[in-house]
Lab assay of single mutants.
Amino acid sequence: GKMTGIVKWFNADKGFGFITPDDGSKDVFVHFSAIQNDGYKSSDEGQKVSFTIESGAKGPAAGNVTSL
Rank of each mutant, 00 (worst) to 15 (best):
G1S: 11
G1F: 08
G1M: 11
G1C: 13
G1R: 13
K2W: 10
K2G: 06
K2V: 12
M3K: 11
M3I: 10
T4R: 06
T4E: 03
T4V: 08
I6K: 11
V7G: 01
V7D: 03
K8N: 05
K8R: 11
W9N: 02
W9K: 01
W9Y: 07
F10N: 01
F10G: 02
N11T: 03
A12M: 11
A12K: 15
D13I: 13
D13W: 11
D13K: 14
K14S: 07
G15Y: 03
G17T: 01
G17N: 01
G17C: 05
F18P: 00
F18C: 10
I19Q: 00
T20M: 10
T20D: 02
T20L: 09
T20A: 09
D22F: 06
D22W: 04
D23N: 09
D23T: 05
D23P: 02
G24E: 02
G24A: 04
G24V: 02
S25Y: 04
K26W: 06
D27M: 05
D27H: 04
V28A: 00
V28Y: 04
F29I: 03
F29E: 02
V30G: 01
S33K: 06
A34P: 05
A34D: 08
I35A: 03
D38E: 12
G39Q: 10
G39M: 11
G39W: 14
Y40C: 14
S43E: 07
S43T: 15
D44F: 15
D44E: 15
E45C: 15
E45G: 14
E45F: 14
G46W: 11
G46R: 08
G46T: 07
K48H: 14
K48Y: 10
K48F: 08
K48T: 06
V49T: 00
S50C: 12
F51H: 01
F51C: 04
T52G: 03
T52F: 08
T52K: 02
I53N: 03
E54I: 15
E54W: 09
S55W: 15
S55G: 09
G56T: 15
G56P: 03
A57P: 14
A57F: 12
A57R: 13
K58I: 08
K58W: 15
K58M: 11
K58H: 12
K58E: 07
K58A: 09
P60F: 10
A61F: 15
A61E: 15
A61W: 15
G63N: 11
G63W: 12
G63Y: 12
V65R: 00
T66G: 05
S67K: 14
S67D: 07
L68N: 07
L68K: 05
